[in-house]
């Protein structure tokens, strides 16, 4: 079974596949469209950006937009590398911490029985439903009272407990059969070993999925920068890119914003490509039925 799962592509092509391919191919084009669009958009010269009807593919690719972006950032007091470093540090810390906490909590929620479990799950459910924007002011109060304003923790801590990720991972842990855990206990494993050596490897696809989602949230987050950070040198790149786009509004801004969105999009794509093999390697290969 495990071996079979690795080769998901059938070796031969037969006629039965045609009808499925006929439906899938056009839809695939739709799905891939936006990415092609973003990449093309960033390289368009000015007159193509405003062409009517809008063109999809770039005809005369230029690097104009990127040089303009560079020019803007050079005129600022703080070097671009500082923002890049901030963004990277914040993202790595948040994603790592939140995945650790989420998988721990999901394991406990799903496989360990203790009092108050149902209540905590209810609270998590409500937290999922709640609009994040509305808790901005209370969150600000908490952070300022803890003295975290203008520190890296102001970026990291508010996003560490992510209810949606917990919900998703917990659903996957639910599907790990209890007998597997019992067998490990019989073999003398303690709960931490069960968590580390059994649960984590099995739910790897879920972790990869959650990782992509959490990364999204953190990487594109501007709220922490604009509300919890006053010090310009502690803000993240997303925020900076956004101010650039806003500052250079009007006709020239279009090109800069296209280039900025490509730059912001590339890390997403890279992480996605790294994660995708384990995301796609679904549970069928991991010994559960």
């Amino acid at each position: 079974m495990a071996l079979k799962g690795r080769h998901i592509n059938p070796k031969r092509f037969d006629r039965g596949q045609i009808k499925i391919l006929l439906i899938l191919l056009p839809l695939t084009l739709f799905m891939a469209l936006p990415i092609v669009f973003i990449i093309n958009h960033a390289f368009k010269p000015m007159e193509e950006l405003f062409a009517f009807p809008p063109t999809f593919f770039v005809r005369n690719p230029t690097l104009d937009n990127f040089t303009k972006l560079m020019k803007f950032s050079r005129s600022a007091g703080i070097p671009l590398s500082r923002y890049v470093f901030n963004s990277l540090a914040v993202t790595v810390l948040t994603v790592g911490l939140s995945l650790l906490l989420t998988t721990c909590a999901a394991f406990a929620f799903s496989k360990i029985k203790f009092r108050g479990r149902a209540l905590m799950l209810q609270i998590n459910q409500i937290a999922i439903m709640f609009v994040a924007t509305a808790v901005l002011i209370p969150r600000y109060m908490v952070i300022s009272r803890m003295g975290l304003i203008d520190t890296i923790f102001a970026h990291v801590l508010p996003l560490v407990a992510m209810p949606v990720a917990l919900f998703l991972v917990k659903q996957f842990v639910d599907q790990v059969p209890d007998s597997l855990i019992e067998a490990a206990h019989l073999d003398g494993a303690n709960d931490f070993q069960v968590y580390w050596q059994i649960i984590l490897p099995i739910i790897k696809p879920a972790i990869a999925t959650a990782m992509v989602l959490v990364f999204q949230q953190v990487w594109t987050n501007m709220e922490t920068s604009s509300y919890f950070i006053n010090d310009e040198s502690m803000k993240t790149m997303t925020f900076y890119m956004n101010t650039l786009v806003n500052a250079s509004n009007g006709v020239a801004g279009q090109g800069v914003s296209a280039a900025a969105s490509l730059i912001m999009f590339v890390p997403n794509l890279v992480l996605f490509i790294i994660c995708q093999s384990s995301v796609m390697n679904t549970m069928a290969t991991s010994g559960i039925k």
Binding site: L100, L101, T102, C104, A105, F107, A108, F109, I112, F114, M120, I123, N124, I126, A127, F130, V135, P138, R139, V142, L157, P158, V160, A161, P163, L166, D191, Y195
Partner: peptide
């Protein structure tokens, strides 16, 4: 297993809500 998540959630989710 719950405590780290609980603390985070209590301070930054439940209390603000």
């Amino acid at each position: 297993f719950m405590i780290p998540w609980l603390i985070g959630a209590a301070i930054f989710l439940v209390y603000p809500i």
